[in-house]
């Protein structure tokens, strides 16, 4: 059973530890600005929402990549960007309807969550268990997938 990230906004305090862990794992420096996971603030609701790629089955980014730079990690299901192959054309950044693959101007490459090979740093560091790595069925990311399906350009698929 593949696992996926489950975010529980009601538990998030907005402390940035996930962003710090992510940036250190990927950029070798504490640098929330370069984290693959981002916390969005909803001051009116007093909510913080950790947000990153759900590794959707549709994989808009992967399909849109013109140079085969995004591939699936068969073990985790993560869609992974090869920095070597990425030319920085940014097509994936507008193709992904979730906005979770982003261009980094200083490196000229796109970056996204790769689930850290199956041991996500954000999950390990979160002090409030607002980010979990659990069996995909249990994540309730069915809702995300539902939204993913809604963005599919094929509005209906009827097998013959």
């Amino acid at each position: 059973m593949q696992k996926s990230l489950l975010m529980i906004p009601s538990k998030c305090t907005g402390c940035s530890q996930c962003e710090l862990a992510c940036s250190y794992a990927k950029e070798e420096a504490f640098n929330a600005a370069k984290s693959r996971i981002k916390i969005f603030d909803f001051p009116e609701k007093s909510r913080h929402v950790p947000y990153t790629c759900t590794q959707c089955a549709e994989a808009w980014c992967m399909k849109a990549c013109p140079v085969d730079a995004i591939s699936e990690d068969k073990k985790t299901g993560a869609k992974i960007v090869s920095a070597e192959l990425c030319v920085g054309c940014k097509v994936c950044t507008i193709a992904c309807p979730f906005g979770t693959i982003n261009y980094q101007q200083d490196t000229g490459k796109v970056v996204k969550c790769d689930l850290c090979g199956g041991d996500p740093e954000c999950v390990k560091i979160c002090p409030t268990e607002a980010i979990l790595y659990v069996n995909a069925d249990a994540t309730g990311d069915a809702r995300m997938r539902e939204w993913a399906a809604k963005s599919d350009e094929a509005s209906d698929v009827t097998p013959n």
Binding site: T93, I94, C96, P97, F98, G99, N102, W147, S151, E153
Partner: peptide, 14 residues
């Protein structure tokens, strides 16, 4: 802007 621009597609196209 480079961050999360894909969301624009999500908002419009979903």
């Amino acid at each position: 802007r480079t961050d999360q621009v894909g969301v624009l597609r999500g908002l419009i196209h979903t």
